[in-house]
Design a protein around this nucleic acid. Structure first.
Lengths: 155, 155
DNA sequence: TATTGTTATACTCTATAACTATA
DNA sequence: TATAGTTATAGAGTATAACAATA
C-alpha cells in the first residue's frame, strides 16, 4: 500500500471533467487498458500486439508479400522489416523469395508459428470475453459496430 | 490518384476478418483515425494531443504541480518535463516555484495559454461533432459510456 | 520509370534508474 | 528516509528519404 497509515497529505484528485467529456480521451484511455489486458493474457515471452496482427493476417493470407501486409495493417513498409525479422528469428514464419517476381518475398507461417498463433488466439479470446463480461454482450456488439463505423467513416 | 488508368495489377485486399472481429483491433484503428482528425482540426503549428491534455487540465486545476498532473494524465513523471518545457517555451504556461514547499512548481496558464486553449477547444468541438454526426447522438453517448466503463473496469 | 525490400535517420513515446534539492 | 523535479538511457513506434535489385 502506498499510504497505510493515511498519515501523508494526499493530493486531491484533479478535475478531469473536460477531458472525460471527450471521445478522444476516453478511447485513448480504454485502448491503453485493453492492450495492457492483452499483454496480461499473452504472458511475458509472447509477442507484441503488432506481431500478433502479422501472424493472424499471414495465417489467413498465406504467401502475401510484405507490402501487402504493410498496407493491410496500416504500417509503413519499412516497419515491416524488423517486425518480420523478429518473427522469422523465432522460427514463426519464413520469407520465401518469389520465383515469378524476384522482388517479392512471400510470407508464410511455419508449423511452429501456426501452433503459437493457435495458443495466442485462445488466450486472446479470454481477454475478449472479459470485455464482453464487463459491457454485456449487446453493448459489446454495439461498441464493435460503432468503432468499425468510425474507422470506415474517418479514413 | 494512385492508379488513374486502372492499368496496374492491384493486389486484392487481404482477408482481415479475424482481426476485425476483435474489439482490440477496432479500438486501435478508431483511436488512430480519431487522433488524426484532431490533428486535422488543430492545424499544423498547434499542439500535440498530450500537450492539449496538459493545457486543459491545468486550466481547470490552476497551480497543480507536475507530479499531480502526471498522475492525473497517466504519464510518468519524467515525461512531464519535456511536455511542460515545450509549453513554457511557447509562453503558454509558467512554472511558479512554491513558497511553501520549495520542491514544488505550480503550473499555471498564461493569458496566451488561455487564449490558445480556448481556440483549440472550439476546434476540438468541431472534431467531436464530426464523430457525433457519424454515429448519431445516442450511439455517440453510448460509445462514450462504454469506453468509460471499460476504463474503470479494466484498471 | 516504378516497385519491393531494405537501410538510415530522426523524432516521439514509454519505462527505469538515479541524481539534486528539499522536506 | 521520502518526495518533486530533473537527467540520462534504452527500447519501441512512427515517418521519411534513399538505395539496390528487379520489373
Amino acid at each position: 500500500m502506498a499510504d497505510p497509515q493515511g498519515a501523508r497529505a494526499v493530493s486531491p484528485a484533479l478535475d478531469l471533467s473536460y477531458l472525460e467529456s471527450t471521445i478522444g480521451y476516453a478511447i485513448r484511455r480504454a485502448q491503453l487498458l485493453i492492450f495492457a489486458d492483452i499483454y496480461r493474457v499473452f504472458g511475458e515471452d509472447a509477442v507484441t500486439t503488432a506481431q500478433f496482427s502479422v501472424l493472424a493476417v499471414v495465417a489467413d493470407n498465406p504467401g502475401a508479400n510484405q507490402s501487402d501486409l504493410a498496407l493491410a495493417l496500416g504500417v509503413e513498409r519499412p516497419r515491416m522489416v524488423p517486425l518480420i525479422d523478429a518473427l522469422e528469428e523465432r522460427g514463426l514464419l519464413v520469407r520465401i523469395p518469389s520465383i515469378v517476381d524476384r522482388r517479392h518475398r512471400h510470407i508464410q507461417l511455419t508449423p511452429e508459428g501456426e501452433r503459437l498463433l493457435s495458443r495466442l488466439k485462445q488466450r486472446f479470446s479470454v481477454h475478449q470475453q472479459r470485455l464482453i463480461d464487463v459491457l454485456g454482450p449487446s453493448d459489446a456488439e454495439r461498441l464493435l459496430r460503432s468503432l468499425r463505423l468510425l474507422a470506415t467513416a474517418m479514413s
